[in-house]
Amino acid sequence: MKKSHIIAFIAIVAAVSIIVIGSKDVTTYGDFSMAENAPGSVKIAGTLDLNKPIHFDIEEDPNSFSFYMNDKANNRKKVIVSMAKPQDFEQSESIVVTGKLKGDTFYAHDILLKCPSKYKDEEIRLRAGLDKEKVG
């Protein structure tokens, strides 16, 4: 048996085991119904419900804020995130939270926001600038 064959064999075994082990780290963006049965933490994608209260009171707890999120199946649940409220949270277009569902509340330890791009922002600003002109 040549050494290159041994190396190739080891590489293949390593590659297969990495794929097997690594694929367990992968999840899909789910909805709240998926979180009900999940044993570990899950990622839920959705949008912020601006009609419901967003609560962050630094005096009460600097490590937590809460809001209501609509998932892709349009289920609404309260989400409590264990960190301070990020900047521009209210402007977010979509949200991904990572955590667990306990009862009717989703406890998240991580949150990712997708915010409107700078360019879109600019267009809004230019338009707003014009509105101001009209009034003035």
Partner: peptide
């Protein structure tokens, strides 16, 4: 449904 890595750093 696109998949994502749950917790990148340990992964």
């Amino acid at each position: 449904e696109g998949s994502v890595i749950n917790d990148p750093i340990p992964h």
